[in-house]
Design a protein around this nucleic acid. Structure first.
Lengths: 341, 341
DNA sequence: TTTTCCAACCAAACCGTTTTCAATTTTCTC
DNA sequence: GAGAAAATTGAAAACGGTTTGGTTGGAAAA
């Protein structure tokens, strides 16, 4: 059913019907009610493409999806979905081919030109992320999930990775650990740099020199967690504690520790970062996992919220949120034991 | 830059320009090349909303996202993205409020009416799934990922859950296990029913009566895996083997078995279903996990492909794919040990 | 040479809304 | 009760493309 026909059925002009449904003030409450009722009864709803063409709004927020298939992604999106469900806005997932730099820029450029989205959420930014510069230049509203040091005004939401890891590391030091290993995320991303920085600062403020042999970077997979942990533990002077980048990494670390006949929380302490997944909880691991915790879902929800604010006119300059991260101590951390000679 | 202006720049009519860019035959190769070059140079690309309004195509495939935040979801989407990256089609994620039945139907109805998507992918169908009936009735092209017994013609892609679980269970029986527990997915979904059926058939064909005390249903979380496994193992007549619905469930089962001082692969055998995640691999678990395996990502990719076929005119009746599932035996399965009296 | 046909191009209608501007009715004000 | 102001409603012009149904000029056929 089209507007024209529907209007005829109701006995009004298309103009009035359109206004009634969009909540304009210049239509009487009586007619509005009548129109609304008829719309439900006759099953009329405006053609979205016509509305978009006319208003210039796309009614969607874009999220570029890399090929890595990160498990965080689903939680973030679920959070966005939670916030957007009552809104007339949906989520457009844009597939990204290769992480080829040239192509990626082209992808964003085309995305903006095609006007398919009203705003974009940029993930895992780098300190000098060119996507941010590009989007700013093109005048597309966007929000960065994470942070960038780039000298371009932009809205962002991030968790305080540096403080979180610094605190976690300090706690391990307070427990007497001196050889602490760090399994970080992919190199280059700001969050990984911040975590690295937090790690180093904690060590240095206690007079411990970071050992490059105990620092690793890579994807958040159980496999890398295992491999790195295992190779660290097989070194002549092995670590007595680990800071792990994700729950999956932690699973790998647990395995590595066990596989060497060591006991977590006694021989080796572990703190991981937990994005809070419904399907894998730190509290349930054995022994339960001490973690720096921040809900990815909440971040998704809030990001969606901030994007809506951005779209309704709030300045990007005002939108900067740095979320504190909880440190939750459980059984995977304990005092350092005197090292076996 | 708009078509009108761009056409003027090139010295042609909007008609010809439009045709040149859309590859119509009635435009000479010379002009087409000229137009294409100018489009790149001047940065012209058609306004997507105008195209959609005019052609009636939305250029997007819809996927409804539940609130559960399933970890499979990201992999499936990554697969879709892989297939769609070269296409002019993107993925629209539609947030679903509550799994309230009434609302859900309304959501689908509105989605169809608003013409935001060209096709929809339906997940985790039930045997008599009303979404399928509705979409068929409304004439919206759709593909079901999973299967339904509903008497309405529709395209689907599914993995052979029944055969997979039947084979897994039979293998456990062949190893001498008689008390086998099953931790299945949420009740109601066809896949869960198929798995249940495969489980029961395997038992019955070996003369074993399924024990309702050893069958559980629920979300695929490590927590439920742990709880169910633990409660089963604490029964007077505990199982010696488990069939687990997912990798997360398997993690929980592993923990439960260990927590009771038992050894996986020796005291208790485990087979789980593995959707193949880059971040958590069955082969890396300790002991490595025997699994029925089928790539969720491949399914996503193929589903996107089939939807494109559907949209280019292929009949839904022709599109039925039942994928076989591999059974990969590793260390988590072993011969049943004589039960302790 | 005339007619026919075809390749290449164009003018204008249309997709289904929103919104400007104007018209009409109703309500106030004095 | 007249005139002004306010509240409603409508006609028609966009929005930016695609597509129908021509028109044109030159090559091929007669």
């Amino acid at each position: 059913m089209r507007l024209k026909e529907f209007a005829k059925q109701v006995g009004l002009s298309p103009t009035t019907v359109s206004r009634a449904l969009s909540g304009y003030p210049e239509v009487s409450e009586t007619t509005r009610a009548r129109v609304a009722e008829a719309a439900v009864r006759l099953g009329y709803s405006p053609n979205v493409n016509a509305v978009r063409l006319k208003t210039g709004r796309a009614g969607a927020i874009g999220v570029v999806m890399g090929r890595a298939g990160e498990f965080h992604f689903a939680e973030f999106m679920a959070g966005m979905a939670e916030r957007l469900v009552a809104e007339e806005t949906d989520i457009l997932v844009i597939p990204m081919a290769d992480p080829n730099h040239e192509d990626e820029m082209q992808l964003y450029r085309r995305l903006v030109e095609s006007r398919r989205v009203d705003a974009i959420i940029v993930h895992s930014p780098k300190p000098d992320d060119e996507r941010i510069a590009l989007l700013h230049e093109l005048g597309m509203p966007f929000l960065v999930h994470g942070r960038s040091a780039i000298d371009v005004p932009h809205a962002w939401l991030d968790i305080d990775n540096e403080a979180a890891i610094k605190r976690a590391t300090s706690h391990l030091i307070d427990l007497g650990h001196r050889r602490i290993a760090m399994i970080n995320g992919r190199p280059g991303a700001t969050y990984a740099l911040h975590r690295d920085s937090g790690f180093r600062k904690a060590l240095q403020s206690h007079g411990i020199e970071p050992d490059a042999q105990l620092i690793a970077n890579g994807n958040f997979t159980d496999e890398l967690g295992f491999r790195f942990a295992r190779s660290f533990l097989e070194q002549p002077n092995p670590p007595t504690a680990f800071v792990a980048g994700s729950m999956m990494t932690a699973l790998g670390v647990y395995r590595a520790v066990r596989s060497l006949g060591l006991q977590i929380g006694r021989d080796v302490s572990v703190i991981a970062h937990d994005d809070v997944f419904p399907y894998l909880t730190a509290d349930n691991m054995v022994p339960s996992l001490s973690a720096t915790r921040s809900s990815m879902r909440a971040a998704g929800s809030r990001c969606a919220d901030l994007v809506l604010q951005l779209l309704s006119g709030r300045s990007a300059l005002e939108i900067h949120e740095l979320w504190p991260v909880e440190l939750i101590l459980r059984e995977s951390t304990g005092p350092a034991r005197p090292s076996k000679p």
